[in-house]
């Protein structure tokens, strides 16, 4: 390195701001490498040392990490899309067209959509890997359950996002999906025993305007209320739930002994 540049870097590294951010030297030896992981809030999700066989690509396929990466990519691209998109039937479709036609970085919608599909595939493969390596076995039983809930949330995230472009694909796919809600036993109008829940005097509790599908759609069909409901679920409720459970999931990976391996 040229001498002037070297001395500038030296000056920065010895300055008070630098040392207030990084409380260790450059990670060159064992002590500083351990410090690099332990003193960083993001990196300290990791243990300081792992089994080499545990992080081999042929063992983990990196699918859990890829799912998390895609979650971050979806979050970032999704927040940027929220600046532009309006979740009302009058504008939703034209905003999507606008993203494609004349918005700088409108490619974000492509990234967001394909990333969502990729995330579904990645989380299935992650689950398959964990199953085939028997990694759900003690002591990791609980974390497998957390992972199953995360799988469901991921698919619900994709399902709610499916409606937002407000095209034919969107409303009819959601219609097919939410029709299932109508068939919920006891709670859906079209489901078994829908007339069992009654108030005294024979007043039915479950009607087309109070059943499980109505709860989901805020209406009897997929309309503007459903769009708003799915928008809030997609952008706020489900991502918060996912982020919380991801934190639990990662924490438990460490607490349960790290990545599994032969005993």
């Amino acid at each position: 390195m040229p001498q002037p540049l070297h001395s500038v870097l030296e000056y920065i590294r010895s300055s008070q701001p630098w040392n207030s951010i990084f409380r260790h030297g450059i990670p060159r030896d064992r002590r500083t490498r351990v410090m690099a992981i332990m003193s960083n809030v993001f990196l300290h999700l990791h243990p300081v040392a792992v089994r080499k066989s545990g992080i081999r690509l042929s063992f983990t396929w990196c699918m859990g990490g890829l799912t998390f990466f895609l979650f971050l990519a979806e979050t970032i691209s999704g927040v940027l899309l929220m600046f532009y998109y309006r979740p009302v039937p009058e504008y939703a479709y034209s905003d999507i067209i606008g993203l494609r036609a004349h918005v700088t970085l409108g490619l974000l919608r492509e990234i967001h959509r394909w990333g969502a599909h990729a995330m579904i595939i990645a989380i299935w493969l992650h689950m398959m890997r964990v199953f085939l390596t028997g990694s759900y076995k003690p002591p990791r039983e609980f974390n497998w359950g957390v992972g199953v809930i995360l799988l469901v949330i991921t698919m619900l995230l994709s399902f709610t996002g499916y409606l937002l472009p407000w095209d034919q694909l969107a409303i009819w796919a959601i219609t097919v999906g939410s029709n299932m809600g109508k068939a919920t036993p006891f709670l859906g109008m079209g489901g078994p025993f829908s007339d069992v829940l009654q108030l005294p005097g024979g007043v039915p509790l479950v009607t087309t305007r109070s059943d499980a599908a109505y709860l989901l759609l805020a209406g009897t069909s997929v309309g503007e209320n459903a769009l708003m409901r799915f928008y809030v679920l997609h952008c706020i409720a489900l991502p918060l739930a996912a982020a919380t459970l991801i934190a639990v999931h990662f924490w438990r990976v460490r607490k349960d002994g790290g990545i599994s391996g032969p005993l």
């Binding site: 494609r100 492509e110 394909w114 994709s158 095209d167 034919q168 969107a170 796919a173 219609t175 997929v222």
Partner: peptide, 26 residues
């Protein structure tokens, strides 16, 4: 992937005209 392939987008939603077949997300 995003540059090469455009994300799915069909004609605007028409609550009166279901496509045949109507399919759930894949």
């Amino acid at each position: 992937w995003s540059v090469l392939l455009r994300a799915p987008l069909e004609s605007p939603a028409n609550p009166a005209g279901p496509p045949n077949p109507s399919k759930a997300p894949w």
